[in-house]
Amino acid sequence: MSDKMTEKMEVKGLNFYYGTKQALKDINLAVQEGEITALIGPSGCGKTTFLRCLNRMHDLYPGNRYEGEILLEGKNILRKGIDLIKLRSRIGMVFQKPTPFPMSISDNIAFGLKLKGIRNRGEIEGRVETALKDSALFDEVKDRLNTPALSLSGGQQQRLCIARAVAVEPDVILMDEPCSALDPVATVKIEDLMSELKSNYTVVIVTHNMQQAARVSEYTGFFMLGEVMEFDRTKRIFTNPKNKMTEDYITGRFG
């Protein structure tokens, strides 16, 4: 744990609407730099919706609307005229299902590097290797970097996607239930990986698995019906929740 607390992202009074339907109500929370922040809650509670606000993924579809502020290092990313392409290269994302692009393993990682303007072959190769090592995938794939990414197993594909996100050195990595499509063994590997990443990156993870949140995260936010019921240190949420509903949820009385 780092001794000095800095807020990497800060969300203030965020409301979000799908057309006329309000999906998030007055969200306030802060994401600490170099820590893993977990978002839990029953399905449909808005945790994924919230996550996708953080890199403005909702802008891909018409009719979505934000209110409030999301600050990334003090600057509001909801302001008009912000460059979404730049924003998204600063905030990486890993999805529920592995999403390898239809190209080779190394090209998957090189994709983001080339976007950053890195043309030098040697540098690309080096950074591909680093990213694969960082995501604990290198030993498994080093002999077949040029085979299609789709030939990997599900767990390997997901680690490749994490490697792809890591390679461009984003400020924050968003993970949307990254283990929900994986078996327990692969899940353990990803969780180990998250703990490794913590030293260099800020991670926000959505999970429906409370044990996972308890295992990997430092902070936890409990969402329900589009609102944050409680946000605190993970230890506190799981041992001594202030909110009755949080307690009911984590003790499995509903959900």
Binding site: M57, L60, R88
Partner: peptide, 12 residues
């Protein structure tokens, strides 16, 4: 769409 989102997700 999740595949396209991953593309946008790395800033493409």
């Amino acid at each position: 769409s999740i595949l396209k989102e991953s593309g946008y997700g790395v800033g493409a």
